[in-house]
Structure formats: C-alpha cells, structure tokens
Amino acid sequence: MMIRERNHNGVTIVMPVGRLDSSSASQFMSGSPSFSGNGKIVIDLSEVDFIDSTGLGSLVGIARKKREQGGDVRLACLNEKLRKVFEITQAFRLFDIYDDAETAAGRQG
C-alpha cells in the first residue's frame, strides 16, 4: 500500500493507492500522521480499486478517531465498486462523500 498526500487550502488530502483489504488495512491506518489530531482531512479514494470489510473498517476507525478528537474526515472519488460496499454496509450514513477531493477540501477550515 502506498499513500500519497497533498494539500489543498490547508486541508490534507490523503490518497491511498492500491487495494485496501485485510492485508493492507493496518498499514494504511498507521500510514499518515493526519489520521490523528483535530484537523480536517479528505481521503481521496480514486486510486483504490478494491476495498473489503477490513478496509472499510479502517476508514470507519479513522473517522471515529478523528471525530472523537474534534476533527473530521471526508471521502472523495469512490468508484462504483467502492460505493457498493458503502451502500450494502450502510457505511454511507457515516461519511460525507464527494465527487472530487478538491471540492471536499475546499470549503473546510
């Protein structure tokens, strides 16, 4: 799992690349310092082509931690496959999901 980061209007956009599954989820969760603290971040999923329940669990975990610490996570660029996972698990109810990362980052902070 590779993780890229960029910044837009002072908001960190984290972009994991590859598969977010049970063999990479724990690596992903410890992959960015922005996952803790009260900042607001966007996770850009455009380069994730597969997600399973463990991968989803890691996103939920990051969201919970961020929100407990007063921060927030938004998601962007879910392809059909990923969206389906959010749909069938009802996880869409926990996340703000945007078409593109820049808009997700834009009006924050």
Partner: peptide, 21 residues
C-alpha cells in the same frame, strides 16, 4: 446480526456483505 453502523464498528461487516452480495 450486522453491526450498528452508528457505533462506528471497525469490523463485523464481512458476513453482512456476503449476505448482501
């Protein structure tokens, strides 16, 4: 039973997903 999503469960989605898919 499937986990309650609003309690931010980090696991337990597997069987729910299989059942839905």
């Amino acid at each position: 039973p499937p986990p309650d999503i609003f309690s931010y469960p980090e696991s337990g989605y597997g069987l729910l997903m299989i059942r839905q898919l």
